[in-house]
Design a protein around this nucleic acid. Structure first.
Lengths: 332, 332
DNA sequence: GTAATAGTGTCTTTCAGACAGTATGAC
DNA sequence: GTCATACTGTCTGAAAGACACTATTAC
């Protein structure tokens, strides 16, 4: 780590751009050369754009015609392993000149316009639970957990051989990590630990990216958990999922995904889509209205049942309270 | 942002390494060539270290003899402005070859050994409130807020000329930002907004770094707020301060700063040193003990008053509850 | 005894969680 | 009327916030 000859490094910006259509959270993807799903990504050029965020915004606007609203930096992944041994799919020369080390800065973007047609590139929206089937508990406990994940992870945790190589890092033993990520033994399911769960599945060889990167795989490519993505894009998407689920609770980011006016039921449905589980209806309404997060517009919708009142976000809350969010806890 | 010729970029790793000595939070600094305070920083070399964190740890260990405990990535700053126009101090050729664009990845480190003597480099601990005198409310409202900050910021907020250039970004008007950062008009002081406050002072030209970077300065260098640092190091330190204050409340990170055993008073004093304000004693004790965060060792200290019971951290809590932290709210 | 620090008992208010119930539309 | 969806009233128990009080040492 001396500065005598600093190596040349390229910085990839990758964006997980999220929208919710009805009950389905979606992420904006671009098909890569190998046909594998990929996040919109590009190489940062400081000569063209002063900051990461400026570059990201103008470039997403140019390529997808989509004006980004809320944007937040997630994490910067510097692992060399990210590009190691791409045995299947996508030796995408545009994104991965192997002669230069790549570092990727992940971003979360929220948008309220679900764009149907793509302008420019082959951009399309895909349901994000296709990449993380174990994260959606709205129809009950996902079957993949008991049929595939827990059987393999239990074996993996019982294998003490792999433990030793973990000691030089500050990670807890496999069994503890398994319980903290997937619950059981008194520990609850924590919807915010989406990244930790993905990384555990990666280490255990249960996702296709592990095999691609040259690690030992526990299951065949067909049986692997969830749809794979290019490079470390699924890790970035898992980071986005966890961050968004956490941030909902103390910042009013959910309204970046809503139209200007909306019903309380639509708001709750959107929150449930993100969190991956259902909420107690009365408590949700009390928190939203009692917390002064919204105000009624006076208008009503016509649906098949009783008309619902329309609300809009009260932007003033951010000035009134330190952490205005949806303190959702009770499941329903 | 095309990939035809990705520019060569160097990645600086900068670490805000925090320890608490008694009632004083300290940060590990290194004197730079210009005599200005600097965070330990180095250039990332992927040939030598597989990940950012591995590099950071080995290099801090080599240079300071300090074994890092808790380490967390804070943020990646890609602004070109970071190295712009260094008119005073530290044209530090080792860290800033101006021919190459530098991006800096900021890290937060926590350590429980306050190292007295330095090994290797000129490393030393400095009280962090010297860099942020407006953040310490333990002796009441800091006088610098009313004597210097608010008078200038009020004028700055009333200047509508500067507003227009802000419109293309998604930032609220100056007056709103002022209130959200420094309170007033019904809005409370939020200790977690340390970064937002520093950036507001930077934009308004109230910190020395703004003048150094070529921006208009509202006050003279002598009257500027707090001690300046090299490059964007004070911005990284402000990020660390805000993140640590927030994280305390939902993760048991405070114990990374404590010795193996400690009294509840010592624990409270450490928390107060980080948060910058006093806490209600009884509620604090109830939370710590009721939350099962600690367990008594059975031993006692001898002090000038009644002996205090010694406690240790219960590591098991992280497996028992999703977000074990110190939900401190009431001030005392 | 005093000074100094450690620790407890209990009251009130707030709010999350959950129960059951009523209201207003389409048909 | 039925069905479907929107909305309200109220109980309960767990904590947060704040009050005053007692305990054990050094001197």
């Amino acid at each position: 780590m001396t500065a005598s000859s600093p190596p040349a490094i390229a910085i990839d910006l990758s964006a997980a751009i999220v929208a919710v259509a009805g009950q389905t959270p979606q992420v904006l993807t671009a098909r890569s050369a190998g046909g594998i799903a990929a996040l919109p990504a590009g190489v940062f050029d400081p000569e063209t754009h002063r900051t990461f965020e400026i570059g990201l915004r103008s470039w997403v606007r140019d390529q997808t015609g989509l004006g980004l609203g809320y944007v937040e930096q997630l994490y910067t992944f510097g692992d060399r392993g990210r590009l190691a041994a791409p045995t299947q799919g996508a030796a995408n020369a545009e994104h991965a000149p192997v002669t230069r080390h790549h570092v990727s800065v992940g971003y979360l973007g929220l948008t309220r316009v679900p764009p149907g047609a793509d302008t420019g590139t082959a951009a399309l929206l895909k349901p994000w639970y296709g990449f993380f089937p174990w994260e959606d508990w709205r129809l009950g406990r996902p079957s993949i957990i008991d049929s595939l994940i827990l059987p393999h992870l239990t074996l993996w945790a019982a294998d003490a051989e792999g433990e030793k190589s973990d000691l030089w890092r500050r990670v807890p033993p496999r069994r503890t990590r398994l319980i903290q990520c997937f619950g059981g033994d008194g520990a609850p399911w924590d919807e915010e630990k989406a990244l930790e769960r993905y990384e555990l599945l990666y280490e255990a060889g249960l996702v296709a990216e592990a095999r691609r990167d040259g690690h030992q795989a526990l299951v065949s490519a067909e049986a692997a958990c969830g749809e794979p993505m290019l490079f470390d894009h699924r890790r970035i998407l898992a980071t986005a999922l966890g961050r968004l689920r956490a941030k909902l609770k103390y910042r009013p980011v959910i309204f970046e995904l809503m139209p200007e006016t909306f019903t309380l039921t639509a708001l709750q449905t959107t929150v449930e889509a993100i969190l991956g589980h259902h909420l107690h209806k009365q408590n949700f309404r009390r928190q939203v209205e009692g917390g002064a997060l919204v105000e009624a517009t006076g208008q009503l919708t016509r649906t098949s049942g009783r008309p619902a009142a329309l609300f809009r976000f009260r932007r003033e809350v951010v000035a009134e309270r330190p952490t205005p969010g949806l303190r959702v806890g009770a499941k329903g």
